[in-house]
Design a protein around this nucleic acid. Structure first.
Lengths: 188, 188
DNA sequence: AACTATACAGACCCATCCGTCTATTTCAAG
DNA sequence: CTTGAAATAGACGGATGGGTCTGTATAGTT
C-alpha cells in the first residue's frame, strides 16, 4: 500500500473541503473518492470534525510551505520578497483551484467562536503574519511590525475581494497599494 | 397586521443567516422564529435560495445605509470621513452581533461562481468600493481610484482578520496602516 | 352575507446527513 | 498454518433537510 489509508483520507478531504466547502461535502463522498470504507474513516477519526481538523492542519502545512518557497524562489533580497508576496498571491488567485482562503471559509461555516476549527484558522493567520514580519525585519524596515500588519491586511483584503467580488486582479491592486509602503524601505 | 408576513420572513432570515450562516439555518427554524406558516414562505418565495437572495438584498441596503450614515455623522470633512471609515468598522467589529461580512460568508458557503447569490455579494462589494471612491474624490485625492482601492483592501482585510484571526483590534490596525496613505491628502 | 385571497398547523414525502453495526475478507507476523 | 489486526461493503438508525399537500380559519371587500 503506497499511502496509508489515513493519508488518503486527509488528502481527499482537504481537496474536497477546499473546493466545495465543509458542510457541502459529506462523509460518504469523501470515503468514496478516497477509495476507503466508511468504517476505516471512523477507525482513524472520532468524527467528521476531527477529519476537518486534520485536513486543515495538513492544508496549513502545505500552504505555508508552498507560499514561502515560491516567495523565496522568486527574489533574493528581503525587500524584494515583500513585493513578491503579491506576485505569489496573484498566481494563486488565478490558478484553477482558487476558492478563497479555506481558513476564512472554515470560519464562515463554523460559527461557534470556541470551536477548535476556529482556533486552527486563527493560528494559521497568526503564522502567516509572523512570516511577513520576519521578512519585514530582514528588510530593515523602520517599523517591521507595522509594515507587516499593513501588508498582511492588503493580502487578506485581496484574498477576500478575489473570492467575494470575483476580482481576479485583486492581488495586482494590492501590489499597487503596497508600493506606497514598500517605497519607504531602505534602499539596498 | 403590523408588518407584512413577507417582511417578517426576510428580517428573520437575515438575522439568522448573519448570525448562524446559511446552510446551518433551516427553513423550519426561520418560519418558527418568524411566526408564520411554512406555506406562507413558499407563497412568497419559490425556494430557500430566493429567500436568501431577498435577505441579502435587505442586508445590503441596511448595511450600506447604516455605514455611510455613521461615517457622515462622525465627521464633516471628506478627508476626515475617510479616516472615520475605520472607526465605524471598529465599532461594528466590537458589537455584539459581529459575525464577519455576511456577503463574504455567503461566497464561502455558495461555491458555484455563477450563483446569483455570488453575483449579489460581488455587487455589494462593488457598491462599497464606489462609496469609498466618492469620499476620496471629495477629499481631493491625487489618485482617488488608487486611494479608494487601498483603503478598501485595508477595510476588507480587517473584516477578514477580525473573524478568522479573532482579532477585535483589526480595525485599529487597519486605521494605523491607513494613516500612511491618508497623510498624502491635501490639507484642508 | 357572500366571496376571495391569504395564512394557518401539521402531516407527509423523499433525499441526505453522520455515525454504528455486522459479517466477510485481506494480509502480514509469529 | 494460524492468529489477529485492519480494511472491506453495505445495511441500518435517527435526525434533519427542503419542499408539497390538505383542510381549516381568518379577514377584508363588495
Amino acid at each position: 500500500m503506497r499511502a496509508s489509508k489515513r493519508e488518503q483520507l486527509v488528502d481527499t478531504a482537504m481537496r474536497l473541503f477546499c473546493r466545495d466547502g465543509f458542510q457541502s461535502v459529506g462523509i460518504d463522498r469523501i470515503v468514496a473518492e478516497a477509495g476507503v470504507a466508511k468504517m476505516t474513516l471512523y477507525n482513524h477519526f472520532k468524527s467528521k470534525d476531527e477529519l476537518v481538523l486534520a485536513a486543515l492542519r495538513r492544508r496549513d502545512e502545505l500552504f505555508r510551505n508552498s507560499f514561502s518557497r515560491q516567495v523565496e524562489a522568486a527574489v533574493d533580497t528581503p525587500a524584494g520578497r515583500l513585493a513578491a508576496l503579491f506576485d505569489v498571491l496573484h498566481a494563486w488567485i488565478n490558478s484553477d483551484d482558487f476558492n478563497g482562503c479555506v481558513f476564512c471559509n472554515a470560519a464562515a461555516e463554523y460559527r461557534d467562536a470556541s470551536s477548535p476549527i476556529r482556533a486552527l484558522a486563527a493560528e494559521h493567520k497568526r503564522l502567516m503574519l509572523a512570516y511577513i514580519r520576519s521578512l519585514a525585519e530582514q528588510a530593515g524596515a523602520e517599523h517591521p511590525e507595522g509594515l507587516a500588519e499593513h501588508l498582511n491586511l492588503l493580502l487578506e483584503g485581496a484574498i477576500s475581494q478575489a473570492l467575494t467580488a470575483s476580482d481576479l486582479d485583486a492581488a495586482k491592486t494590492a501590489a499597487r497599494a503596497a508600493r506606497v509602503v514598500l517605497d519607504t524601505l531602505p534602499k539596498q
